[in-house]
Every structure is written in structure tokens, then in C-alpha cells.
Design a protein around this nucleic acid. Sequence first.
DNA 1: GTCTATATAATGATAGAC
DNA 2: GTCTATCATTATATAGAC
Lengths: 199, 199
Amino acid sequence: MSASETRRQIADVADRLFYEHGFEATSFADIARDVGLSRGNFYYHFKTKDEILDAVIARRVSNTRAMLDAWEQAASSPAERIRSFIHILIANRTKIMAHGCPVGTLCNELAKLDHAAKNDAILLFTLFRDWLARQFAALGREADADGLALHILMRSQGVATLFTAFRDEDFIRREVADMEAWLQAQCPAASLLHSRQSA
Amino acid sequence: MSASETRRQIADVADRLFYEHGFEATSFADIARDVGLSRGNFYYHFKTKDEILDAVIARRVSNTRAMLDAWEQAASSPAERIRSFIHILIANRTKIMAHGCPVGTLCNELAKLDHAAKNDAILLFTLFRDWLARQFAALGREADADGLALHILMRSQGVATLFTAFRDEDFIRREVADMEAWLQAQCPAASLLHSRQSA
DNA sequence: GTCTATATAATGATAGAC
DNA sequence: GTCTATCATTATATAGAC
């Protein structure tokens, strides 16, 4: 196997394990086992655990950018794009129930560890924040686009944390519906494109 | 020093360290050092790390109950009591900025570790949930009191997580004001006791 | 590029002197 | 009730054979 391919595979497995069990709780041996490598060979690809974390974050940044680009292409309106964001709570609910939000839980853990990569993880939040703000600006809310972006990001984080704790499907569906209603209320004109409640 | 007093002190220090750095990242040596005990003597008081976690959670449950009781006594109306809850985000903002919400971050970590004490930690959320639901019921929202309680709990979690990441004081103040506005909107009659916006 | 063997430090945990 | 000394295990990390 080529070095770059093995590196990619290690980052792939580490990404999953860091998400499922946390950064601290995941050991080199755990990653090596799941990749099918000896611990010794492992160090040929990554010198330190922090290097793997950097690779995992870089991978997540890249994947997140790709996802946001895909939403940008797939949806025909800013409101519909924001709904794509809201609906990852439903789409990923099984994983969220077990392990929480990948971004929020990583940022929280790295904050507690006061880890050097803390700010790199926060960049993941920033990607969503800026993308959402652009959508709100396109909806005519230039003045408070960033505040609205943070608000919806805040809600997604709160829903994820409580869903991990209480594992209540009704709760997540209710809160997602509430987020959609809130979105409609933010831009009544755009909402007409999708529901004719006031037509 | 008496055994019970030392035990109490260990739980006290462990509570702080688990909050500041996380459960996994805190070692016996860390706790022993901060208490001023040798590692050996440590095991006279607690046999395993999980036992300390149990003691820490029991301590937090007790402290939370005391805080909720104090709010119950201090405030003259259900709406004012709910505002007491909302305002811990402001009162504890320095700690939240550094280490997140003590309840949310512990539940997230124990969920990832699939730890035996996971459900005990969730009880901390349940204390807030049930207390808030009682306040909403007292406001005349018996039918959806639990949903409203989860909603405000969800918001506090989301605000805490994003505040830890972005460390933006304006954000937390804006969201707290928004939570208060939401509260007013839930029970217009009760709100008249505190603001005369519609008088 | 992968392996085995190993170094070193820290972890959770115990035994026994005082 | 506290200490020192120690154990077994695991962790990160390295050396060197193949």
C-alpha cells in the first residue's frame, strides 16, 4: 500500500474513533488495530498523536466544505439551504444519539484539554457560521446575518446535546420543526416559496 | 483529619478537575496532588476512579438540588424562577467560556466512554428538566410544560457550547435576552408582573 | 513500508510500615 | 489515617531487522 493511501486510511479511522470515543480515550493501539497496522509501523506515518488530530481536523474541514458546497448546489434558495443544515439533526440522529455532534463535542474536549489544536477545531464551527450567515444575507438580512447564523448553530448544538442525553425522537422532531418555523418567521417573503400559509 | 472530611475534600477537588479538564484527562495523581495527599493514601478513601466519579455526581446532584431549592425560595413567581435559570449563563460565563457547561460536557464525555455512570450524570439534566417543567406548569402551561422545559434547557446547552468556542460576550448577552423574550411570549399574563410593555 | 522488540513514562491499583 | 515502596498495565514513542 502507498504511504499516502495508508495515511488517508489512518486519518479515516482516527476520525471515526475520535468521534465515537473522544480524543483522549482513543489510543494509538486502537487506531492501529482498526486500520490493521502494527503499532510500530504506525509511527512511520504519524510521529505524534497531535499530528493525527491535525490530520483528522483537516479531513473534517475538507469534508465540511464539500458538504456545504453540495448544499449550495442542490438547493435553489437560501432558505432551502438553511433547511439542509437544520435537517442534518434528523439525518444523523442515530450517530448524534450515541456520540453527540462531532464538532461540538470535539471543541468541548479540546477546550478542556487546552489543546494546541483547539482553534483549528473551532474553525469547523466557523465554516458553518459563515456559510449560514451568507444564506441569511442572501435572504435580505445583511444587518444581522451573523447573529442569525449563530442562533441556528446554537440551537443545533443544544438539540444535539440533549438528544444524546435523553434519546427522545419526539424531542428532536419537535425542535427541528420549531427551527423551521423560526426560519420562516425570519424571512416571511422567502417562506412563500415553500409554504402558502399566508397566501 | 477525619476520614469523612478527607473524602469530602477529595470529591470537592475531583469535581473541579473533572469539570476543568474532563474525567479521562484527570488522573489519581492530579487529584491527590491538589488535595495534598500521597497517591497511596488516596486508595484508603476511594478504591477506583469510578467510585470518585460516583461521589462527584452525587455531590453535583446535591448541590443542584440545593440551588433549585434556593431559587424556589428566592423568587416570587414561576417566571422569575425560570429567569434565575436563564441567568446562570451570565453569572457563570467565565467558567463556561473556559470549560463549558458542567452537566452537558460530563454527559457528552460519559456517553462517548459508554461509562456505567452515564445515566447518573443524565439525572443532573433531569433535575433541571423537572424543576423547569414545574415552573411552566405553574404558569398555566401544564399541557406542554415538559416540552418548554426541554426547549429552554436545549438553548442553555447550545449557548454554552458556542460560547466556549467563540468566547463572544455579545453573543451570550444577545441569546440570554432572546431567551427572556421567548419566556415572556410563552406566558403573556405572567409577564405583566415584571414588565409593563403592554400595559 | 511493514514488522518485532523495546524504551520510557504514566496510569490505575496494592502491600505493608508507621 | 498517612506514608513509602512497589506492581501490573497501558500509553506514547523509538530502534533496527526485513
